[in-house]
Amino acid sequence: MLAIKNVTKKFGAKIALNNLSFNIPTGSVFGLIGSNGSGKSTLLRIISGVYEPDGGSAEIDGESTYENVRLKGESFFISDFPYFYNNSTVENLAVLYRQLYPNWSEIKFQQLCSMFPIGVKDRIINMSKGMQRQAALMLALSTCPKYLLLDEIFDGLDPVVRQLIKKLLIEMVVENQTTVIIASHNLRELEDVCDHVGLIHCGGIILEKELDAAKLGIHRVQIVLGDEVGEGVFSDFNIVKSQRQGKLYELTIKGDADEITERLNALNPQFMELLPLTLEEVFISEMEVAGYDINNILK
């Protein structure tokens, strides 16, 4: 298990992560979401050992990842802009990674070479953004990491390659019990592949739970009530957002679906429908609670 324990990171006076704590179960695909500048990439860099936290630690099975050769050998971090030297090719990087990473799989590398449309002898720096990410991912997957840290991995990839990558990630999790942490704003893709999700805002964790639980803990309700119903009829509900058009109320309510249904039925609605939220809707709802919504930005 990967444990984030009271991690604090400052860049000068700016606090990027503030006493952050949560756990990521082994073998899960963890989606790290959050507003811009919330600290997602910083957290990934701390987990991968690039940054040393100013307080707390990122631990895997009780060991800090910072300056830990063994744990870093079992991890791979692809940053939001993977770096390649001018003369780097997949082939010569493979030579380096083969010697650096103890779990490097030549078979896996050859499989991936045949899978991705990338010339292994071509200079990576001359490739498109998407191709560069594919190259980075080929090398990362070939190291057979136990912890794969991906920052905005879906950026610049075409839909087919996205599907391919999601498939490969899921296969790896199943085969190797790899823990994958993906930081992304592409919530649609995350929804497909993640089983856990963590929402970070202003250096703190707002939400961290299984994706299904996160999605099931918040619901959108469309309900039409009779004329006799007063304004305070929903005051007992944990309402995140409410809108009214005539007799139609559109509500976002936190809580158990059955309990909400039962209580709303008690109001004798003329029409009621309980709809599941997408991850994006969950994100927006939670961020609105945290004060990060478009109305606040426009103020």
């Binding site: 860099r45 991968s48 690039v50 050769v69 870093k72 991890s75 971090f77 770096y83 650096l100 990473y101």
Partner: peptide, 16 residues
């Protein structure tokens, strides 16, 4: 002196 290369080197399984 490049944030991207610092990411790459920092993540390598070696100490600084």
């Amino acid at each position: 002196h490049n944030k991207r290369s610092v990411d790459m080197y920092g993540a390598f399984p070696v100490i600084r």
